[in-house]
Design a protein around this nucleic acid. Structure first.
Ligand SMILES: [Mn+2]
Ligand SMILES: [Mn+2]
Ligand SMILES: [Zn+2]
Ligand SMILES: [Zn+2]
Lengths: 135, 135
DNA sequence: TCCTAAAAGAGAACAGTTCTCATATAAGGA
DNA sequence: TCCTTATATGAGAACTGTTCTCTTTTAGGA
């Protein structure tokens, strides 16, 4: 919590109850939608305006405190995990899990060091691994 | 065009002018949105109802004639390229280009043959390569 | 404590998608 | 070729997710 306050301060953002609970929600939930975040906050803490949630999420993205997750749906999902990682997407439902694999990242870096893509400068490579979660 | 008719027949779909022009639009445009498709059709051919476009696109996805593209936006984009491929995403704008690389696919297959992800059965691996297109 | 720029709230507006239901039509069979 | 009918389309309402506008509140420095 003091941790979360620090993150806001470091980015020069005013510390407000709304920002604290939104950032806490993104950290505690797995790739939530804006609506997931609103429900989470309203259940634990106080009420919050939806416009505030969208605006704060946008601010956090601008400041690099969170990221967006890519999906094939028309709803945006957010991610609090900032280190480079990939995603396991369930082919049955909307579940998304983080997948961290530095060995794989090294293989990909090496590969694209040799094999250049013409007229394109790579900045980041993210895998979407679609499949089935086994319970 | 006869080609497109065949694709519909093969899937047991009635051949209608709307379906023909929607499938043609997805083939001719690069990762279009429903709105891109509507504009394209209205410009070349006749009018078409937006509900029809969404419904037909959904049918095509169900039948495996097209796919969705994953993005971090709240608008859905479609893809007529059915062979396995990856995407180059512009970090400046909304441009997405196809990236086909069988050598890379082999490397990934080999890698995940050895290194299993626990409690997860991989079905498909797609790279999103974010970066800058050089003109 | 006071001041003020910035943030939040409320709700309207907007954008993208889905639904409902009346009408039109593709295509198989007579 | 003409019927028949299951299926597809059109028009527009409804719905969902997001953004905007404008007023009120508040964080945090002076
Ligand atoms: Mn939208
Ligand atoms: Mn939507
Ligand atoms: Zn993640
Ligand atoms: Zn593609």
């Amino acid at each position: 919590m003091a941790n979360i306050k620090n993150k806001l301060s470091e980015k020069g953002l005013k510390i407000t109850p709304q920002r604290l609970s939104i950032l806490e929600a993104v950290y505690n939930l797995s790739h939530p939608t804006a609506d997931d975040i609103i429900k989470y906050i309203r259940q634990k803490h106080s009420n919050i305006a939806t416009g505030t949630v969208y605006k704060v999420l946008d601010t956090f993205i601008q400041k690099g405190l969170i990221k967006k997750v890519t999906t094939d749906k028309d709803v945006i999902r957010y991610d609090g995990l900032l280190i480079h990682h990939h995603h396991l997407h369930s082919s049955k439902d909307i579940l998304i899990k983080d997948y961290i694999d530095e060995e794989l990242d090294k293989i990909l870096n090496d590969y694209f060091q040799k094999k250049k893509i013409k007229n394109f400068k790579i900045e980041e490579i993210t895998l979407q691994i679609r499949g089935k979660f086994k319970k």
